[in-house]
Simulated scan of single mutants.
Amino acid sequence: MHNRKLFIVLTITFVSVYLLFKAFPGDGENEGRTQEIVKITNTLGKSWILPDEDTIMMEPLNSTRGTPPPYMLVMVITSPANQKRRSLLRNQFQTWENMAKNWNITIKFLFFLGGSNEDETSMDKLFQEGSQHRDLVIDDFHETYLNLTLKSCRMLKWVNLRYPSVPLLAKLDDDVYINWDLIFGFLRNKDAPNLIAGSPFSSAYPVADPTSKFYTPPIVWETGTGYPTYACGVFYILGKRVRQELYKGALSTRLFHMEDMFLTGIVRERFLPDVGIQEIKEYISTLHLEGNPWSILYSGWGPCQFYEGVAVAHSLSVKRLQCFFRIGYFCKNGFVHAVKILCPKE
C-alpha cells in the first residue's frame, strides 16, 4: 500500500514538472541562446569574418569596373524572404539618385544578405533576382539575428574590397524610411573621411530580460555597467577612414552579438577614440501612426511638415513605407492637397 502511494505521488510530480516545462519552454531556449551569445563573445573577429577567404556567393557583375566610384554607397541590409521590400525600394532608387544629383552627389544602392541556409529553390529565385537587377550581394552565412554582427562585418569586407575608395558608406535596414534631401543637407561641410553619423545611444545599458532580443547575459557584460556610445544600427553613415579602421579593428576584437554596439561602440572606442558619433537630429526611432492621414505626422504635424522634418524612421511595414514614399512624392512636387492617403492600422 505504501509503495502504491509513493508511486502515485512520484507520477503526479513527474507529470506536473513535465507540464510545467511544456507550458514554459522558454527557459531551455533562453539557456541555449545565452550559450550562443557567450560563444560569439569568445570569438575573435577574424575567425568568423575570414578576411583572406572569398565568402561571396553572388555579386553584381562588373559593378565597379570602368566607372568612378559614387560619392556614397548605400548597402541595404535585407533578408532572402524580403523580396517585396527590395522591390519597393528599387522603385525609389532612381528618384533618390536624381535627388542626389541636385546636391552634386553621386549615390549607388545595393542589397546585402546571407544565403547559406536557403534551400535550392529559394537560392534559384535569389540568383534570378540578382541576375535581373544586378544589385544583390549574397554572402555565405546563415541569416539569424545573432549573426547580424557577422553580417555587418562581411558587408564591410566586401565594400573595402570592391569599393575601396568610396568616400561614404551608408548602412540601411530594409524597413527604414529615409528623406535623402535631409541627409544630403546634413552632409554638407562634414569631415567625410572621419565621419560616423546616425542616432547615438549614449546612455545604453545591457538588457537583463532573457526573453528580449537585446538580452545580454551578465557573464558577457555586467548588468548595470553602461555600453560605450554607439550609433543605432538601422541607419548610419561611415567615412572612408572610419570604415576601413572599423573593419581592421573588428578582425582583432572579440565579437559582440549587437552589431551596432560592436562596430560603432566597442571597436570605435578601441581603435578610433578621437572619432565621435555625429547626430542626425531628425532621426525618429518609432512612429505610432493611426489610420487618419493627418495623424501620420509626428506631434500633430501635417503630411508635408512630416516630409520636411523627418530624416529617418524605422521598423515600418511595406504598406507604411509605400505611404511614406507617396507623401514624399506629393510634397516634393507641390501636390499638397493630393495627400489623401491612409496609412493602414496594423
Rank of each mutant, 00 (worst) to 15 (best):
I12F: 10
T13N: 05
L20P: 02
L20W: 11
P25S: 10
L44F: 09
S47T: 15
S47N: 14
D52Y: 10
L61K: 15
L61A: 15
T67L: 14
P70K: 08
M75K: 05
K84H: 09
N91D: 14
Q94R: 15
A100Q: 09
A100I: 10
N102Q: 13
E118Y: 07
E120H: 06
Q128A: 14
Q128L: 13
E129H: 10
L136Q: 02
V137S: 03
Y145H: 04
C153G: 07
L161A: 13
L161V: 01
Y163H: 08
L168P: 02
N194P: 00
G198P: 03
S202Y: 04
A208D: 07
D209Y: 04
D209G: 04
P210W: 03
P217H: 08
P218F: 00
T229D: 10
G233V: 05
Y236P: 00
I237W: 07
I237N: 01
V242K: 03
Y247W: 14
Y247K: 09
L255R: 12
D260H: 03
L272A: 07
I280V: 14
I284Y: 08
T286C: 12
L287E: 09
W294F: 15
W294E: 13
W294Y: 15
S295H: 13
S299T: 10
G300V: 08
G309I: 06
V312M: 03
A313Y: 01
H314Y: 04
Q322M: 07
F324H: 05
Y329Q: 13
F330S: 09
F335I: 08
K345W: 08
